[in-house]
Nucleic acid binder design. Structure first.
Lengths: 353, 353
DNA sequence: TTGTGGCACTCGTCCGGAAGGAGCGCTGAT
DNA sequence: ATCAGCGCTCCTTCCGGACGAGTGCCACAA
């Protein structure tokens, strides 16, 4: 990444990796003697001390106080996950265990819930799943129901399975018969097309044929336009926040509170996940890299998931920076894949339920 | 309450109250010297010691260890809130501040959200609101939409404003026309009546006229029965759980975790609130009185709220047992009243939105 | 030049004991 | 009944010493 990392020779790399692994596994600053032994290198502790001094100069590790062992810095972790990390492949059993949690017959919402609780339970950290963007889902049907003076309930059936409804506030009042006719008109023209297409088509018609159509149809188009407007559900599913209470490096109450608050608000979580949606592999955020100060001592591991070859969302976990990346990364990875295929299977056979 | 409390003479009562107030305000065990001074009584510390020994014998206070001051027990708190507590009336400004948080134009959901976040912010503890039971709300309209083979979407419009929809899985398949006819039948017979009445009527018809009606109508009744079945939204709105992280008497991570988990699951919270729905005034639960072990060191203050003179739900706060009941009780009380009237106003003029 | 062993020094942690203070129970006097 | 006094218990805080882990530096060997 940056030039200081390029200059690391093989021994330095080995020692840095061993140091970080050791620190991750027991949370204690690691000293030269132990590091020399653990590294497997045939060098003395004194030599290791010299190397450690170099690494400290480059900002990769630091000593909490004089004559304590060394601890990785954010930059150290960064280098570690970028070029030193060797992930363990998840075992067959693990994969099966995760897969068994995805019921192919379940609704989208249930699948997302499963994914985030699987993530949280398997990693013992907090799991989160960004809702899938609606890609080329087909509009099956649209209906209107008059609620009262100028208030209309629009019901969209998508993909023959999911239902959304919205209350529209209109300028003028329509009778139920009017509404029925408009729904018929829209259904005849639009049913089966993707939401995207439908919107585009409505806008086009509105511009092109404004003068040729009778008022009724114009109103219908306008209504459809309103009903379909702004449809992406900007949300995220989280699970297992409380797992984070177990990590003593997060024991600062004020920080912890900000962290949990972020999960409640969901806004910042959403921002983080949206940053990760570009890129097609597992991504890792370390500490404050994301710019949030409550993120000290926390890291995020994310992976995008896709349906039909197209990335539709991101999922991931959030936990202490001192986490077993070699274990967590493949779990997140495989969960993303499995969620993708579960959604995929579902989308192909809407009648399977 | 129990007979030990009856026997308290005036001086004992004063001392117990002073002790608890003092402990609530600074969290330290209180000794005889300080208590004698704070009580305002013209007695010496030695006399106070004697009284304290009596109170300890009756299980109202206890010493954390030999020669420490005394601390109230659960029973002590109980007696305190039942017969010693003098609540401070909330100031006009406080009431106005709370009232201003309830926007009369807002939806039910928004009002409940406001209520629970007001509770949490004003008391600096966690706030919760039990969803209102649907009482005599009128069914305005019912519609059915065919989703696919045997799957039907039922749409209920209630009170002309709220919309609920449910997906029904049916044995046999109906065409959209069939469904339309059944909806017409049900609307003609039932619209405008209360949900309660409607259910009762459907059940009665089903039993009485099973043989006289044609299959179509029978099916309609059956469908309506399914669509209306089990309609109460068993849920609760919570806010400000993270406030609880600030109290050092709840600093035990494991307990804290169970506590937050309870807020996530909502089930136990619901149980607690449901216990409080009987009774028309503020109620207080102290420590494990509710039988939950994670409740150690916690208390709940609740008040029912009513619309049209009928109790429809409960709201309250949960916080450390060592809380300022004199401040919290009136806040909960007034919030319940204001939520009630906000809902009431709203219900009377369904067109105001 | 690079690695190594040795040595002095720095900190943090872990007792143990002493001092101080808060508070209790008991008793005898009013 | 109330109260002052006394002896006692226990918690907290502070201090100093022992210990161990670890560092930095230097002189020396390969």
């Amino acid at each position: 990444m940056n030039d200081s990392s390029i200059q690391l020779d093989s021994r330095e790399r080995t020692l840095l990796r061993t140091l970080i692994e050791s620190y991750i596994s027991d949370g204690q600053p690691v000293g030269s003697r132990n590091l020399a032994r653990a590294s497997g290198l045939k060098v003395s502790a004194a030599t290791v001390r010299n190397v450690m001094a170099d690494l400290e100069d480059r900002g990769l590790i630091q000593a909490p106080h004089t004559s304590a062992g060394r601890v990785p810095t954010t930059a150290g972790y960064r280098l570690f996950v970028d070029s030193l990390l060797e992930v363990r492949k998840p075992s067959r059993e693990q994969i099966d265990a995760i897969e068994s949690r995805f019921d192919p017959g379940a609704s989208t919402q249930d699948l997302l819930d499963s994914a985030s609780s699987v993530l949280s339970q398997v990693t013992r950290m907090a799991g989160m799943v960004r809702l899938p963007r609606h890609r080329n889902v087909a509009l099956s049907q649209i209906e209107f129901l008059r609620l009262g003076e100028g208030r209309v309930l629009a019901i969209l059936v998508i993909d023959g399975r999911e239902v959304q409804n919205r209350v529209l506030e209109l300028e003028r009042d329509f009778s139920q018969d009017d509404l029925q006719r408009m729904a018929n008109y829209l259904n005849a023209h639009l049913a089966g097309k993707s939401l995207h297409t439908v919107r585009a088509e409505l806008l086009r018609e509105m511009r092109e044929v404004r003068d040729d159509l009778d008022a009724q149809m114009l109103a219908a188009i306008d209504l459809g336009e309103q009903a379909l407007g702004d449809e992406d559900p900007d949300d995220v599913v989280v699970a297992g926040q409380t797992q984070l209470l177990g990590y003593e490096e997060l024991a600062d109450m004020e920080r912890l509170r900000q962290l949990l608050e972020a999960f409640n608000e969901k806004r910042e979580i959403l921002g983080i996940l949206d940053q990760c949606i570009r890129g097609d592999r597992v991504q890792i955020f370390i500490g404050r890299e994301s710019g949030l100060d409550w993120f000290e001592n926390c890291s995020v591991v994310t992976a995008p998931y896709s349906v039909d070859g197209e990335v539709v969302g991101v999922l991931g976990v959030i936990g202490p920076t001192r986490m077993s990346y070699d274990r967590v990364v493949p779990i997140v990875d495989v969960t993303a894949r499995l969620l993708g295929s579960a959604l995929n299977v579902r989308g192909e056979s809407p009648d399977s339920q």
